[in-house]
Amino acid sequence: MKQRELALDLGQLVVTRGIAVIGPVTLQLAVGEQLALTGPNGAGKSSLLLAIAGLLPIQSGTLSIAGQPITRGPAAPESWQRGLGWMGQERGLWPHLSIEAQCRLAAAKDRASRQRIGAIAEQLAISDRITRFPAQLSGGEAQRAELLRAVITPGRLLLLDEPFSAQNQEGRQRMETLLDQLCSEGRAVLMASHEVSQNRASCSIGSP
C-alpha cells in the first residue's frame, strides 16, 4: 500500500493568542486532500491557521509542512519559506497594485504564470477584472481575486480563512471547483469555515 504524502502534520499543537489558548490539536492532511475547520466563534480556527503560517507563536507540540518539521523560536522558517498559499479573513489585497501585478509577485519566477493566472481567473469569472485595482472590484470579486493570488503561489499547502464569506451560490461553486482541481493536481487545502458543503471533510475545533 502506497504511503500517504503528508502536506501538514500537527502533533499536540498548542497555540496562544493573548490570554486564549488553542489546542492541543492533532491533525494530518495529505496531498490531494481538503479539510475544513469548523467551530463556534472564537474557537481558534483563524488562530490555528495563523500559527501554521508562522504568524502566531506556538506554545508546544510539533508542526511539519510537506514533511519538513518546523522548529520553534528564532530559527523557525519565516512565513514565506514554508511553501504556503494564504488567504486571510480580512481583505488583504494590496491597493496600490493591480490584481495581475499582485499575482505575478506571488507567482515568483514561474514563467508559465501569466497563462496560469489567466486560466484560473477565467475559472473564477474575474478574467476581465485582473487588470483592475482592488478598489475597483466588488466584495465578492475581491475575495475571488485574493483566492487567485493565494493559489498562484508555488506553495503546495493552501490556508484559507473563511474563503466563501462574501460569495453567492455561483461564486462559491466556482471556488470549490477550483480547489477540487488544485487538490487533484497535488495541492492540499486547510480552511476555516462556518459552514461546510455536503461531501466535504471537516473537523471541529474548540468546545461544541
Binding site: 508562522g54 519565516e78 514565506w80 498559499g85 494564504w86 480580512e90 488583504g92 497594485l97 506571488a106 493570488r149
Partner: peptide, 25 residues
C-alpha cells in the same frame, strides 16, 4: 499598514515584500 495586507505580504520573500508592497504602501 493594515494587518491583513501585512500578513499577506509576509508570504512573499522579504526583499520583494519590502520594496514592492510595504514601501509603496
Amino acid at each position: 499598514l493594515p494587518a491583513s495586507e501585512r500578513v499577506a505580504a509576509q508570504l512573499l520573500p522579504p526583499t520583494r515584500a519590502r520594496w514592492r508592497i510595504r514601501l509603496p504602501r
